[in-house]
Write a protein that binds this DNA or RNA. Structure first.
Length: 555
RNA sequence: GCGGGCGUAGCUCAAUGGUAGAGCGCCAGCCUUCCAAGCUGGAUGUUGACGGUUCGAGUCCGUUCGCCCGCUCCA
């Protein structure tokens, strides 16, 4: 079984994935494309198995709810390309078209051109000319030792009002009205003549130039905390893939590839309610591709630019949201364990307030289900987030589209926007977690260097059928067994080379069972079952093989 | 995005500026009665890409793409 104490080698895993047809670098013959990967034959089977298990367990046969009744979860498959206004309503467009600066402590962002500083024109004490000491921005009011304003003039008027600020700058008196203040050349938008401990001088405010932000990020205090050194380099956050619909590339037809599948569900909430005879609480589920221009794609398929999500939006009354939130955290963790992620490698983690996404601010929080990947070891990486999105999305779409999205609850005799609990899992990341969990070096075993210990339900190939030797009627019997099994499962038939080599090949593919026809089969109609993880063998009747595979693989 | 390392056969790696090779794997045949056994034969390369220097570049120089590590980042 996997040794969970030591991190496994990602390099070796990536090599095995390519060698055995799980995952290839995308566009490899052209040199590859950063942030994209292709699934090979075995990887596709693996991903399909994980996807089908989710769809079966969440949609076709959903879990039982707190009241003992099975939940109602309905499937959906919405467009990857949606109306451009969707992404304005969802909040994805707003913050990400301009250069943004992020405070690494609070995770808050502001537009770089909204960052404004108040400068001294002459040295005063420790302060130097041209270096920003107090910083303002358009963001909401910050802790008391920084200024927040929508314009330099406003910043200065706050400076006038706030005696503490004056103290920080060594200002004893303001001599002129800043709002009628001096023009000081290239655009100090406002200035004020002040008395300080070191004499009289100008103070003025202007946007902090981009090159100053880039060269001196450590010297600029954060507008949120006033701390220096917390601001990251300003950068363009073009998170979404732009595209155009229609044959003409015209700005009116610009839209985006979806960065999450969730919005398609919100767009169809009303359709589903109107057509499917459902009552709140219920869920809508969707599996599909999503696209994000990640700043730094890395760690194999963990952060790629094209990936696949498995999302449920579970609609409920706001009062019941905390209960459903707890419920889904439990259901989803159990599910990941059921597909083979067990032990200490999986954990739940509550988000801190600062890291909550924009849509989750008002909810009861976000739980991450995390997996200890080799590249995060001993830390963990996100596999799924269970978030309370409150009624944020339906409210946004109601405002932007004008559609009536309220739900009328007959039992409560109340019209309301449902709240949403969102278990949002990464299918691609799930595949990676399955690969990492299964990947087991076996230096002690003579046969194979690696075994992929997949849960039998997830294994891309369920079984292999071998004649022990390629003669004496064995291949014919093996072939008949193979023909029988292949209509129900992905199985392989192999007569070539030594039996040990064939077992070893199946170990690397993660095939859980090998059935071998040997001399004894000819006498008593039994075959050996060779188990992947232990290499143990036992005999079963040849006519029981199909039942054995069905029992062991859950199908 | 920054710094460092690395790109040669499917994989792991050789090859003073002078004819691109080995092992493993793969394929075929033989052999083989349970864990990459053995024998024989075979296929496989735009040396990541583009340009430059040179009589001649896998090797030197420049650019670019990709991968790995550390920062950074990851609404």
């Amino acid at each position: 079984m996997p040794d969970n104490d030591a991190p496994k080698s990602m390099e070796d895993l990536v090599a095995l994935c390519k060698r055995r047809g799980f995952i290839y670098p995308a566009s490899e013959i052209y040199g590859g494309l950063n942030g994209f990967w292709d699934y090979g034959p075995l990887g596709t089977e693996l991903k399909n198995n994980l996807r089908d298990a989710w769809w079966n367990d969440m949609v076709k046969s959903p879990p039982v709810g707190p009241n003992g009744e099975p939940l109602v979860i309905l499937g959906l498959d919405s467009s990857i390309i949606q109306h451009p206004k969707v992404w304005e309503a969802s909040g994805h467009v707003g913050g990400f078209n301009d250069l943004m600066v992020e405070d690494s402590e609070t995770k808050k962002r502001f537009r770089a051109d909204h960052l404004q500083g108040i400068y001294l024109l002459e040295p005063a004490g420790d302060m130097k000319v041209g270096e920003p000491y107090l910083v303002t921005s358009l963001m909401e009011r910050a802790p008391d030792h920084t200024l927040v304003a929508s314009s330099p003039a406003e910043a200065l008027s706050i400076l006038i009002a706030e005696r503490k600020m004056q103290k920080l700058m060594g200002i004893r008196a303001l001599k002129s009205n800043p709002l009628s203040g001096h023009s000081l050349g290239k655009p100090p938008y406002a200035a004020v003549w002040v008395d300080t401990d070191h004499g009289s001088r100008y103070v003025y405010a202007e946007s902090v130039p981009i090159d100053v932000l880039q060269s001196l990020p450590g010297s600029i205090p954060s507008p949120f905390t006033g701390d220096k050194g917390a601001l990251a380099q300003p950068r363009q956050f073009n998170l979404m893939f732009q595209t155009y619909y229609g044959a003409v590339f015209d700005e009116d037809h610009k839209t985006y590839l979806r960065p999450e599948t969730a919005q398609g569900i919100f767009l169809n909430f009303k359709n589903v309610v109107d057509t499917m005879r459902v009552k709140v609480p219920f869920g809508i589920a969707q599996i599909g591709k999503a696209f994000r221009n990640e700043v730094t794609p890395r760690n194999f398929i963990f952060r790629s630019r094209e990936f696949e999500q498995m999302e449920i939006e579970f609609f409920c009354h706001g009062d019941d949201a905390p209960m459903w939130y707890e419920y889904w955290c439990e259901v989803r963790k159990n599910w990941w364990q059921s597909v083979g992620l067990t032990g200490d490698n999986i954990q739940m983690r509550q988000h801190e307030n600062e890291e909550l996404a924009h849509y989750a601010k008002d909810g009861c929080g976000t739980f991450d289900i995390e997996y200890r990947f080799p590249f995060t070891h001993p830390g963990f990486g996100e596999l799924e987030g269970v978030a309370h999105r409150s009624d944020f999305d339906l409210r946004q779409h109601r405002e932007h589209s004008g559609a009536k999205l309220e739900y009328f609850d007959q039992e409560r005799n109340e019209r309301y926007l449902p709240h949403v609990i969102e278990p949002s899992g990464g299918l691609s990341r799930g595949v990676l977690a399955l690969l990492c969990e299964a990947f087991t070096p076996t230096p002690e075993r003579k046969g194979s260097k690696y075994v992929m210990c997949f849960h039998p339900r997830m294994a891309p190939v369920k079984a292999a059928i071998f004649p022990l030797v390629n003669k004496e009627g064995m291949p014919e019997i093996a072939r008949k067994l193979y023909d029988d099994l292949r209509t129900r499962w992905p199985v392989q038939f192999d007569v070539k080379q030594s039996i040990g080599k064939r077992y070893a090949r199946m170990d690397e593919a993660g095939t859980p069972y090998c059935f071998t026809i040997d001399g004894e089969t000819l006498e008593d109609q039994t075959v050996t079952v060779r188990e992947r993880d232990t290499a143990d063998q036992k005999r079963i009747a040849i006519d029981q093989v199909a039942r054995y595979v069905a029992d062991e693989t859950g199908g």
